[in-house]
Design a binder for these strands. Structure first.
Length: 815
RNA sequence: GCCCGGGUGGCGGAACGGCAGACGCGCCGGUUUCAAAAACCGGUGAGGGCAACCUCAUGCGGGUUCGAUCCCCGCCCCGGGCACCA
């Protein structure tokens, strides 16, 4: 009856086949066979991967393993768990690869998906593979297009001539979010500003709700902070200044400091500001001013708006009138003013804004104090920096003497009553540039008709299929490759039947990923993106884990789409995700970011071949705190392999006549508690440490009780599911271990009956006393004072007091 | 500049304001082996002491507390995000 040695190859293959054959992880929804309405649902979501040619990276499984453990734990707690997987398969890298090799992106995608699927299956994740989705599948993108049509119908999709971030290398327009440090997020290529008619989505209309609704959801605080920061809400006022020399022209500004309005001594506008066209004609030095504005516009925007760039202003020869006090102030064109924030015009208050202060000093402009500190006055002539702190209004007419924090609202209200301003909120967040001039994306389902303008395709014509092309090369004009396919482009207007041209821009990669979690609920539905029933049952996602890098992109976009779908009655919850967490990056063994260029990439396939999927999964969880970046260590992985070997050997010690040991029982119950709690709290590393402690303790026994080992296997199963299935079977259990109930925790059994209480003297550890757990305080103190070493430190001294923390420690304070 | 994290043995990391260093890696010693690797068992913060024990130690400097890795104040370093945003 010699037991075989632990062979992860055999064990893992066996159980992966079993799970697949038996549909162990299929999650029945309402209406499906085997659906049990009495079970609580739990929707676990990981970010579906982009199937790149490089294959799975050791970073991907960190998130997948963690949530797989959560999913398995929840199932054992009796939940109906949905843990789906799919492919975010449209996108530039595939298209660029296709361009280079001449292989169609569809073929490249199929190949990459097959590879990813193989790699994921080897790791034994409990995905419901029957719900697999792929954003490039016409049956999927039909609904991406459908959502776009709805956005268009409701006026949230519009076409605008906007300056876009043009990546000179990808030859594609990018959203602000895709420009990182002035270069393309994807390829690192140079990004320039270019004007182009683009489809835009009005995410800014949801800005307020995107901030406010964070209050009701369980997102990591840093994620909330980053989203709020990104949306960049500023509360202030719009103030209208009238042009002095040109009647009927107004220049509105946005300011967060209406309390400083009486201190305005100049105004600047962006060189692109349209008001210049009305003000400049006939002004002295018109030609020079125009030339200066052109020079400012010619500078690359990222450089122009760099804080280190020298601020340049040119007097326009015109003035504007301060509506608060009638002051005539000079109007400048300045390089630091930008057209796409606020109104493109800024009021200059040098006394109370450091940037304005420096500008005023440079150009010899007046400095006028309107707020002084509570305890002293300010002399404009002697100021060396702007005074930006709170204070009391001065030189502000009827508001003099009012604290500036109060004056803000009062001045705004006063302006409003005189028709010269109103409260206003602006956002840093811009509308979402939704057009891409590329092939491998969802076609935008509209046509351009000479007579009817932009016309949406009727819903019945969806999906609008991406046509096959021979060449994916972007055109020299920057148009999408689709523009070259005449047979596709030339079509009939659905409204008037006349000649029309199809839209040739495609959607960005963020489109398909903005709603994929809905499609999982009902992936084959041909009538709707998902059935009402499925949406009502499964939504919202209970726990969504992903990378911090998606906080301001995918996460914000998908919340926006979801709110829109909620508003039009398609989905039933205002927020898609109840809880959002994020994992830390896996770094190379040298502690640097893993990359091909650094030569420190670890291939998961190789690791699984050497140590097995269970050991690999264990290491991914054990390596460190889940939310922190951690360097990879193949030695560490080997340690997990050794642990599994010890577990395997432990099974050989299982005997029916093993005695009950009180302390083993206690440790077991403590472990049941800790592992469960730690999974909920994402402290996977300490959950495993506890399991190792228990395994080590069991290993000390010559014989291990069946009951004890059974429960140990159950506790291990969310993390190392293959070996757990095998041992479960060996113990006589029917598969699958994943359908067994989570072991019951008994607080009484976990309780120690003797406790060791550390004794401190003046806060320093001097001894320990072992007492029954239910000892009276007086007895414990007495024992503590009687300890030999404690006596060494208390002898001849006066005991001032004795601090006793029940069950924790005694501290004797002496003098 | 602003907003988040983080700094603990040789390394990854543990510690409701209460025994600093759980667990793992590495290292050292042992068992096994002709030998090595692997595996298994034991030891392992630094310094002192024959030992019992003692001293020091959680980036730096203060503070609160009977007691601080943890809370407060002021710094230094590392990582991430935002940044002429009016």
């Amino acid at each position: 009856m010699a037991r075989p040695e632990y062979s992860f190859e055999a064990v893992e293959k066996k159980w992966q086949d079993y799970w697949e054959r038996s549909g162990t992880f299929r999650a029945p929804g309402p209406g499906d066979r085997g659906f049990d309405p009495s079970k609580r649902k739990f929707y676990v979501l990981i970010e579906f991967p982009y199937p790149s040619g490089a294959g799975l990276h050791v970073g991907h499984p960190r998130s997948y393993t963690a949530l797989d453990s959560v999913a398995r734990h929840k199932r054992m707690q009796g939940c109906n768990v949905l843990y789906p997987i799919g492919w975010d398969a449209f996108g530039l890298p595939t298209e660029n690869f296709a361009l280079k090799t001449g292989t169609h992106p569809r073929i490249v995608t199929e190949r990459n998906v097959a590879n990813f699927r193989r790699q994921l299956k080897r790791l034994g994740f409990s995905f419901d593979w029957s719900r697999e989705v792929n954003t490039t599948d016409p049956a999927y993108y039909k609904w991406t297009q459908w959502i776009f049509l709805k956005l268009l119908e409701k006026g949230l999709a519009y076409k605008a001539e906007v300056p876009i971030n043009w990546c000179t290398s990808c030859k594609v327009g990018l959203a602000n979010e895709e420009v990182v440090g002035g270069v393309c997020e994807r390829c690192g290529g140079q990004v320039v500003r270019r004007m182009r008619k683009q489809w835009m989505l009005a995410i800014t209309r949801y800005a307020e709700r995107l901030i406010d609704d964070l209050a009701g959801i369980d997102f990591l605080e840093k994620i909330k902070a980053q989203q709020i920061n990104w949306i960049g809400r500023s509360v202030g006022a719009r103030v209208v200044f009238r042009a002095a020399e040109v009647p009927g022209v107004e220049v509105p500004v946005f300011t967060t400091r209406p309390d400083t309005l009486f201190g305005v001594t100049f105004m600047v506008v962006a060189p692109e500001h349209p008001v210049l066209e009305r003000l400049l004609p006939g002004s002295p030095g018109e030609a020079e001013v125009r030339a200066a504005a052109e020079r400012m516009k010619a500078v690359d925007i990222t450089e122009r708006t760099n804080p280190d760039t020298e601020k340049i202003g040119v007097f326009t020869g015109r003035h504007v009138v301060n509506p608060a006090n009638g002051d005539l102030v000079p109007l400048y064109v300045a390089n630091y003013a930008v057209m796409d924030y606020g109104t493109g015009a800024v009021m200059g208050v040098p006394a109370h804004d450091q940037r304005d202060f420096l500008f005023a000093r440079k150009y010899g402009l007046a400095v006028k104090v309107v707020i002084r500190p509570a305890d002293r006055g300010l002399d404009a002539a002697k100021m060396e920096a702007a005074y930006e702190e709170p204070g009391v209004q001065v030189n502000s007419g009827q508001f003099d003497g009012t604290p500036n924090t109060e004056a803000m609202g009062q001045i705004t209200a006063w302006l409003e009553s005189r028709g010269a301003g109103k409260p206003e909120v602006t956002y840093h967040l811009r509308d979402w540039v939704f057009s891409r001039q590329r092939y491998w994306g969802e076609p935008i389902p509209v046509v351009h008709c000479a007579k009817c303008g932009v016309v949406a395709l009727p819903e019945r014509e969806l999906p609008l299929l991406l046509p096959d092309v021979e060449r994916f090369q972007t055109t020299e004009t920057g148009e999408s490759p689709l523009a070259l396919i005449d047979a596709w482009v030339n079509t009939k207007c659905p409204k008037c039947g006349g000649a029309a041209r199809r839209e040739t821009d495609t959607m960005p990669q963020w489109a398909g990923s903005s709603w994929y979690f809905l499609r999982y609920l009902d992936p084959d539905n041909a009538e709707a993106l998902a059935s009402r029933q499925a949406l009502e049952y499964w939504m919202p996602v209970d726990w969504y884990n992903g990378g911090m890098e998606h906080t301001t992109l995918h996460l914000l976009y998908s919340r926006f789409w979801h709110k829109f779908l909620f508003d039009i009655g398609v989905v039933t919850t205002p927020e898609p995700y109840k809880k959002r967490t994020s994992h830390g990056m896996v770094l190379g063994e040298n502690g640097e970011k893993m990359s091909k260029a650094r030569g420190n990439v670890v291939n998961p396939d190789e690791m699984v071949e050497r140590f097995g999927a269970d050991a690999f999964r264990l290491y991914e969880m054990f390596m460190g705190a889940f939310d922190q970046a951690i360097p990879w260590s193949t030695e560490g992985l080997n340690g997990m392999y050794r642990f599994l070997n010890r577990v395997w050997e432990l099974a050989a010690k299982v005997a029916p006549d093993a005695p009950v040991k009180k302390d083993v029982e206690r440790l077991l119950h403590q472990t049941i508690k800790k592992v469960g709690d730690d999974i909920e709290a994402m402290k996977f590393n300490t959950a495993l440490a506890q399991l190792m402690t228990l395994a080590n303790r069991l290993g000390q026994e010559p014989k291990v009780r069946v009951e004890d080992f059974r429960r140990f296997v159950l506790l291990l199963s969310p993390f190392a599911p293959h070996i757990a299935e095998e041992l479960w079977e060996e113990l006589g259990g029917a598969p699958s271990v994943s359908t067994q109930p989570w072991p019951a925790y008994d607080a009484a059994a976990a309780k120690e009956d003797e406790i060791e209480v550390p004794v401190q003297v003046n806060g320093k550890l001097r001894g320990k006393v072992t007492v029954p757990a239910d000892s009276a305080e007086a007895f414990i103190k007495e024992q503590a004072l009687a300890d030999a070493n404690v006596k060494n430190f208390t002898e001849g001294k006066q005991v001032v007091k004795i601090v006793y923390v029940p069950g924790r420690l005694v501290n004797v304070v002496v003098k």
